[in-house]
């Protein structure tokens, strides 16, 4: 059995790490201090350089 991983911070960086590990079959605990994940990126209207919607 694989061991588990803790991620502190649920912005785009923490989310990406969590998904990568989870897809490898590793159990992840994602700790976020605010009521919802998303971090700063969730506050952005669109992102450069493609102007895709942030969420």
């Amino acid at each position: 059995m694989n061991k588990e991983i803790l991620i502190i911070g649920g912005g785009i960086a923490g989310i990406q790490s969590a998904l990568d590990l989870a897809d490898m079959g590793i159990k992840v605990h994602l700790v976020e201090k605010l009521p919802s994940i998303g971090g700063k990126m969730a506050q952005l209207d669109k992102t450069f350089p493609t102007n895709d919607c942030a969420i």
């Binding site: 649920g10 992840v28 605990h29 700790v31 976020e32 605010l34 919802s36 994940i37």
Partner: peptide, 11 residues
């Protein structure tokens, strides 16, 4: 995701 436990509003 079944492999992710989300602990929001936590420190």
């Amino acid at each position: 995701h079944p492999n992710i436990e989300l602990l929001s509003y936590s420190e």
